[in-house]
Simulated assay, not measured.
Amino acid sequence: MTLISPKFLFVPVSSAAGVGEYMRSLIIAREVERRWPNATIQFILNRHAPYAATCPYPAALLDDTPTKNIKAVNDFMSFFLPDFVIFDASGRRSQLAHANKLGAKVIFISQHKRKRSRGMKVLRARVTDSHWVVQPEFVIGAISWLDRFKLRLINKPAPLVIGPVFVNPDESTQVDLLKRYDLCAGEYVLLNAGSGGHMNAQGYIVEEFAKAAVNIHKATGLHCIMVYGPNYPKEFTQVSGVTAIKELSHVELISLIDKAKIAVLSGGDTLLQAIALKKPTLSVAVSKDQNYRLKICQNNDLTVCAAHNAESIALGATKLIEGDSLQKLEAALELCNCVNGLNVGMKEIAALYRSKFGCT
């Protein structure tokens, strides 16, 4: 019996600023490889993204984000002939249509209302086999009755709300990390401003996180782990009470967040992952599209928010650690139904796999 060697093509948004879509695609790709070891996995990336040169899978490199390179992406799909194409917050309708025409199962991932609405447009939905929403429903809300009606007319299901996608904390990794950085579980603060490339009028926002880390240590005595992110271009120095780290793998970051007393995070995917882990957080919007998400999470007592300056971050984190708001957050987090969406997404891929190949 000949083993099926399925081809998976991942097309995430990729730029010099953000890293979330690429990281999510990488997490899914690794789980695909674990599930189907004989699968061929390929990425299409912007060559100017800092992670383009370190992607562990073969990557076709473009001069801009794939959405803006319609012909190049379509030409590559014609050459590669994928069985599955995962567009993570990327892709023009013509690109999805081309993948569909080639016989691929097309998955579109959206992370906010505007992208979700785009994915539900009739001409795009017709050529999409599965539309995933990587936000909890309490953040993004339900779709309208009109959208449901239009999707029924073309015999397409409503977008599947799977929530944040991440690798669960690994116990052995946690033991190694705590030993490596001389930490005790529950006795340190982890700070991370996402990719490290976001800026405000004063410069890189991650630098405000780093200044805040020093003040949090002085105020609370807790050691701080400051993760700068792959897109931060400058050098940094070690300061007493703060361990500065350029970059952690996804599983390392999740594992350290899980064992921290609190985490100070940007309003990107990692915040939702921390909420799913029931970890108290102080959150900071480092881009405009994060403000709405943070407002909803704060209104549901799932995080507390601060402005993107060192004083606000340090004061907010200190109050969270030393005040009674920590217990309030912990209680609300225990009741929250936000879970890891990786397993949900993989079940959907397995169903598409069966429909294409007639086996698992």
Rank of each mutant, 00 (worst) to 15 (best):
N155E: 05
K156I: 11
K156L: 11
A158H: 07
A158L: 12
A158P: 04
A158S: 13
P159R: 02
L160G: 00
G163T: 14
P164N: 13
V165I: 15
V165C: 13
V167D: 04
N168F: 02
D170V: 15
D170A: 14
E171T: 12
T173P: 08
T173I: 15
T173Q: 14
D176Q: 12
D176W: 11
D176P: 01
L177A: 13
Y181F: 15
Y181N: 08
L183H: 08
C184G: 02
A185R: 15
G186I: 06
V189M: 14
L191H: 01
L191N: 01
L191F: 14
A193P: 04
A193H: 00
H198M: 06
H198W: 13
M199A: 08
M199F: 04
A201D: 05
A201L: 10
Q202D: 15
G203K: 05
G203Y: 08
Y204E: 06
V206C: 10
V206P: 02
E207A: 09
E208C: 00
E208A: 08
A210V: 02
A210G: 08
K211V: 01
K211Q: 10
A212V: 01
A212I: 01
A213V: 01
V214I: 09
V214G: 00
N215F: 00
H217A: 03
A219G: 01
T220Y: 10
T220V: 05
H223G: 02
H223N: 04
H223D: 10
C224Q: 10
C224V: 13
M226W: 04
M226D: 03
V227Y: 11
G229Q: 06
G229L: 02
P230L: 14
N231L: 05
P233D: 07
K234G: 09
E235F: 00
F236C: 03
F236D: 00
F236E: 00
Q238D: 06
S240Y: 09
G241D: 01
G241Q: 09
G241W: 08
V242L: 09
V242Q: 07
T243F: 08
E247K: 11
S249A: 15
H250T: 05
H250L: 11
V251T: 15
L253F: 15
I254T: 15
I254N: 03
D258S: 14
K259E: 13
K259Q: 15
K259S: 15
K261G: 03
A263D: 08
V264R: 02
V264D: 03
L265C: 09
G268F: 13
G268S: 08
G268D: 02
D269V: 08
T270R: 11
T270P: 04
L271C: 13
L272Y: 05
A274F: 05
L277S: 11
L277Y: 14
K278D: 02
K279V: 09
K279C: 14
P280Y: 09
P280A: 11
T281W: 02
T281H: 00
S287E: 11
S287M: 05
S287Y: 09
K288I: 08
D289T: 04
Q290A: 10
N291H: 10
N291C: 06
Y292V: 04
R293M: 13
L294R: 07
C297V: 09
Q298T: 03
N299W: 10
N300F: 08
N300G: 04
N300T: 03
N300S: 08
D301M: 10
D301T: 04
D301N: 12
D301P: 00
